[in-house]
């Protein structure tokens, strides 16, 4: 049981790292949203691995409920980001330079 937990938890940690490093790169928005979502799934995997209680055993339901909340929040955030991006592209289809004074 511990080995299983460990395997999945470490996988989750690695996925978090992969997703975060990709999310911090300067990339098209869609790629960054994918990266954030993948990092999020990594965190959820960590939670689920922690909740696991062995084969045939009922898992700890508290992390499951937390992850369920997290999944819904993640889709709301992705939808919001895509909606803003969509409006941005419609308003200024060509002007794609970085915002004025955005980097200090």
């Amino acid at each position: 049981m511990e080995t299983t937990q460990l395997i999945y938890a470490v996988t989750g940690a690695l996925i978090i790292g992969l997703g975060l490093s990709a999310a911090l790169r300067d990339e098209p928005l869609l790629a960054r949203i994918i990266a954030i979502n993948i990092a999020g799934v990594g965190v959820f995997l960590l939670f689920v691995a922690i909740a696991y209680r062995g084969f045939g055993q009922t898992a700890d339901p508290i992390p499951h409920a937390l992850v369920l909340t997290g999944i819904v929040v993640a889709v709301a955030a992705s939808g919001l980001a895509i909606a803003i991006n969509r409006r941005l592209h419609h308003d200024s289809p060509s002007g794609d330079g970085p915002a004025e004074d955005s980097s200090a």
């Binding site: 980001a81 409006r87 308003d91 970085p98 915002a99």
Partner: peptide, 14 residues
């Protein structure tokens, strides 16, 4: 100022 505000909001959100 739409494009400006939207870009800032997006960065803030991400």
């Amino acid at each position: 100022d739409k494009p400006q505000a939207l870009r800032a909001a997006l960065r803030y959100l991400l």
